[in-house]
């Protein structure tokens, strides 16, 4: 059969399989994002604590996570932690764990940045109005912090979605790996399959991330 390139995507259930792979990617992203937002908020609050030991711990955690490539973190957990403590972590668990640890650090830094960017006079004015600490936080600081956080944290979501592509390297079957399998299975029938399948994976990632990052940009422009 002459090579008809693009039809590799629509032969059998190939496209459906790619979408299933994409669903795995999205699932890992959503779970990690959800956990990171919860723990990141707590971590951000922890970073504003004025205790020396707490500060040193936060600094070390944030900077170690940030300086290491995410793939190294993935290796540390998937190969290192499992070997050190003789426990068995699946690629799935390792991925969620690593992306949550990383997302917590990033989200925490965003929360800390938003909190510390609130000018002192906001606290002072609230105190002058007779609000107690709880009220100040609930009615004055929190709403402003959240507004500042929306755009950068939506951006963090696209970063996390893009980073999940790394789990392919530790053997998880997500969209990229599914693409590889389709290419390998059709090597004889569609010699140019790699072009179309990887092109499709590229586009799928774009179609997921682009609306989210556009939304983040629009919100940011609106806020200014």
């Amino acid at each position: 059969m002459p090579d008809s390139g693009i039809s590799i995507l629509f032969t059998g259930s190939n496209f459906w399989r790619l979408l299933q792979g994409l669903w795995v990617t999205i699932q890992i992203s959503l779970i990690s994002v959800g956990l990171s937002f919860v723990f990141g908020t707590l971590f951000g609050l922890l970073m504003t604590v004025k205790n020396r030991v707490v500060k040193a711990f936060c600094w070390l955690y944030l900077n170690f996570i940030r300086i290491m490539p995410q793939l190294v973190l993935l290796f540390l957990v998937y190969f290192g932690v499992t070997r050190q403590w003789r426990i068995n972590l699946s690629a799935w668990t390792s991925a969620i764990l690593v992306f949550t640890l990383w997302g917590t650090a990033e989200m925490g830094d965003l929360v800390r940045g938003a909190l510390t960017s609130i000018p002192v006079h906001q606290y002072e004015s609230a105190a002058a109005l007779g609000m107690d600490r709880k009220q100040t936080f609930r009615y004055v600081i929190l709403p402003q912090t959240i507004r500042r956080l929306i755009a950068p944290s939506i951006n963090l979501i696209t970063r996390m979605i893009k980073t999940t592509s790394l789990v392919e390297i530790i053997g998880m079957v997500e969209v990229l790996k599914t693409g590889q399998q389709i290419i390998d299975a059709n090597r004889m029938k569609f010699p140019t399959g790699a072009l179309w399948v990887y092109g499709a994976v590229f586009l799928l990632y774009f179609l997921v991330c682009w609306p989210i990052s556009s939304l983040a940009r629009k919100l940011e422009e609106k806020r200014r």
């Binding site: 893009k162 592509s165 790394l166 072009l195 092109g199 590229f202 990632y205 991330c209 990052s213």
Partner: peptide, 15 residues
């Protein structure tokens, strides 16, 4: 900016 480097790399190297 909206696609991962690993996918870009695979497209360039294999595609």
């Amino acid at each position: 900016r909206n696609t991962p480097m690993l996918v870009q790399l695979f497209f360039i190297y294999f595609g």
